[in-house]
Design a protein around this nucleic acid. Sequence first.
RNA 1: GGCGCAUUCGUCUAGGGGUCCAGGACGCCGCCCUCUCACGGCGGUAACACGGGUUCAAAUCCCGUAUGCGCUACCA
Length: 461
Amino acid sequence: MIRVRFAPSPTGHLHVGGARTAIFNWLFAKHHGGTFIIRVEDTDLARSTAESETMVLDDLRWLGLLWDEGPDVGGPHAPYRQSERVSRYGQVARGLLQRGIAYRCYCTEEELEAKRKVAEAAGRPPHYDLTCWLNRRDDDSLPHAIRFHVPEDGDVTIDDAIRGEVTWKRESLGDFILVRSDGLPTYNFSVVVDDHDMEITDVIRAEEHLTNTHRQVLIYRAMDWLIPHFAHVSLILGQDRTKLSKRHGATSVAAYAEAGFLADAMVNYLALLGWSAPDGRDVFDRDYAITNFELDRVNSAPAVFDPQKFEWLNGQYIHAMTAAALRPLVVGAIGVDTPWLEEAIDVVKTSVHLLPQFREAIRFVTEYAAPEIDRGFAAAVAADLRENGSPRDADAVRAMNERLKKATGLKGKELFMPLRLALTGMDHGPELVRAIPLLGRASESDPGVLSPLARIEQCIR
RNA sequence: GGCGCAUUCGUCUAGGGGUCCAGGACGCCGCCCUCUCACGGCGGUAACACGGGUUCAAAUCCCGUAUGCGCUACCA
């Protein structure tokens, strides 16, 4: 049984990098019929907040990445918040202490800093100098951290699902902290205890954790715990090829949601950053991604986030959705609802890529200012509308056009452009065979919308 | 500095020794459709970081260099 987890630190909104890691974990779990777990890594008290946790969870829900076990829904290995698991880390650390694998370190941060400087100046790696290891004491009354002693046979090789074999030499590591002097565990320690306790089978996480795996495997070995499979996903970069951050503009999932991107499009786009479909398609739904997702199709090179392609993809989703499905999203995005909105969405949706763009796209319905046009032409249009009524469908528009052709002697562009200008007030917009019936119907159901006839009459005045 | 990871069109990528003078997508350019703007269709532009090997044959394997990134914390 596959069990994976996404382990965010609650320090703000979910970012696209984290979102992609979550998506890969979720897809992997779904593909294998496994369990998707959320674990909150909030041992950094200075940066973690309860509000952030709520935001991150809300962002994940918005993306539709629902979890089977987590801090809010519980599960067989609760609690799923590291701050609530501190006693367990202490318990494991004491075991390591008793077995002489870990030891108490009484060095202060200032002392360590000084030692590091000396080591670097001497051209040696800035590893811990082992003072407290050589001088072991068991004094619980003095402030101290708990350090892991790297064994002689500390070489580690993992078979990463994305990168293949990765090897580290024992020498590249110094003795590292398991539990800080404030009693809280460090990331490398808590992550191992939790992944073991929660029976995680596959650890899929960002590449920045790759070299941490060396330490973690050593802890697994010391505990004689089963080591999970690892998969390290590369970073997402900004346009300047540095790690995506705030100065690249919007980076949080919430910001993109606010900008009018759809959750499905975001999942699709982020999955495409690193993963590729076996048949090469770029647009796919969740079911397709779930059935086809494999770690061996995940690229190991970092990917640059491309807002243009993301926007194009979002447009593909909007164009493919029905107006009825789009309507509530559009109402949410533009804050306007009208009886004619659904028809308007259907008429204009191919011109929008982002939800808020509907506002501008339907402006020709809600706003009208009479343009300067030939009065004779306007009079002919007005006469036709009075006599035949406002066209209610595309065929009726075409019939009206035929009559106007005869009445005015105009055709093609000479006919349609003035007509478009007179009725919509704009020189561009959706095709007239759709726009004119929409205006007629909208004016019937909404007193705020001028009918085609009312519009043409304003041109004559 | 040490260790680790990465390097195919501007961007996302396919590719796993011959089928690759490298395929798809976004972008850009052109054409078509067309009353306009979009949508859509068709076509074009553009890449194997560099240097050595191995091999009959290398984008694909090996080594080195360069560049980028990550870790090297009592952050995660």
